[in-house]
Computed example of a mutant assay.
Amino acid sequence: MNILQALFFPPEQPGGVSSMIPFMLERFNKRGWEMELFSLPKRVRGKGTEPVQFTTFDWERYAGHPVVDKYIQTYKDYVWWTKLRMNKSFDLIHAHHPIAALVMKQLYPDKPVLMTVHSSYERELILNGKIKESGPEHKFLTSIYRELEARMDQLLTVSNSFKQYLAEYVQEPERIGVIPNGFDEKRFRPVAHENKIPQLITVCRLVPAKGLDTLLLACAELKKKGIPFVLHLIGDGPIRPELEQMAIELNIYEEIIFYGYMLHPEDFMPFFDVFVLPSRAEAFGSVFAEAALCGLALIGTNVGGIPEQIEHGHNGLLVPVGDVASLTSALEKVSSDRIYRYNLGRVAWDKARKSYSMTRVVQQLKNVYRPYRRTE
């Protein structure tokens, strides 16, 4: 059986799809399954010219809005690139982005196409202040879910929480499968270490949706209480200057290390003690599973797919979105008690190893793929 994994952009950074698909492909190929990757290079811009049509709604009623126009042009570019570079046939296509899924079904209508919805682009844009809720861009992006339902052979997503989110926009949500992301146990694993001062780490894109302003305010309260810590902030994004200025004004700049973008944070993530990310939205939150596999204690928000990974007080701590006092209390608890945070991290590792291993996701996907095997 020859399977194509169709991504959006190339898998060049850790987290989410980029962290999972290449290593998943390697596992499948070692077991005798033929599998290849396909994606749109970031340098391809403005090449496609073919008209775009959807079957369940008229996208042109939303034309003229920047997000919509960019989305449609990217769709055209994906069509152009696929026609240019695709030179072989596949038995099954598994797409990991709506554009990749719809383009593949358009160009190969007789091939089964599966789609995993990994995240909510529209929620991210709203939380980052790029579009308005219920505005034309929001309506366009959420209409894509119904289009996917109508044209895909199977829809999957990464958490029960996100399946519930999708239910508002599709007609038969019960048909959506749930397969949480899987992670290579060889890349993410604990390392014995001893830090005199608690080392906190977060890994994310520096955008408002990640709630890093809440984290800095909580860290400032932690410093006022006289609790020592170092926060390692890995990632880059448009609000980095704003966060650095905020750290200066809160008198915690000396306690924070801004690393910028890093290709392989898993190489030294195991040497820290606590992973904290107060996101305002997460479909799954892959980086929590990665941190758990490294043996870190977890602190996250009670939103999206995060509570499906963190059982409060058992393998981590959950706090309400935007609640500085609750986040401060959680940070104080894990920072002040080395044994407590060690136990949280140990239980987090055990759960992640059982629930989010690459072995588990490969087996689940095999069960999804098998019905599409050729019988001849």
Rank of each mutant, 00 (worst) to 15 (best):
H232E: 12
T56F: 02
A283C: 03
F38W: 10
L344H: 11
A192V: 13
G15D: 03
Q171W: 00
G15H: 05
Y369M: 01
Q245Y: 01
L114R: 07
F188T: 01
L84D: 12
R240M: 11
I126G: 02
I252H: 05
G15P: 04
T202M: 04
K70Y: 07
Y121L: 14
I310N: 06
K366T: 11
G345K: 13
R61N: 00
P198R: 08
T82M: 15
E249C: 01
Y369K: 05
Q164A: 14
F140R: 01
P11G: 06
E221D: 12
R374S: 14
G316A: 10
E185N: 11
A325W: 06
N2H: 15
P66K: 12
K111R: 15
M104T: 01
I239H: 05
E34P: 06
Y145R: 00
P238F: 01
Y121N: 00
F38I: 03
E172F: 10
A297D: 08
T74C: 11
A150N: 08
M246H: 08
K83Y: 08
G345V: 13
R346S: 15
A352S: 11
M104V: 00
E194F: 13
Y71R: 10
N251L: 04
V68A: 10
L7G: 11
H96N: 10
V52Q: 02
F8V: 00
I197H: 05
R280A: 06
Y342S: 13
G182A: 05
G64R: 05
W349S: 04
F288M: 09
A352Y: 12
D337G: 08
Q53D: 10
L331E: 01
T49P: 00
A281H: 14
V17C: 04
Y62P: 02
S89K: 15
E174D: 13
E26G: 07
L296G: 06
E185K: 13
I3N: 01
E122M: 04
R189Q: 13
D91P: 04
H193R: 13
Y369F: 12
T116G: 06
D110T: 14
I131H: 05
T359Y: 03
L215C: 01
T82P: 02
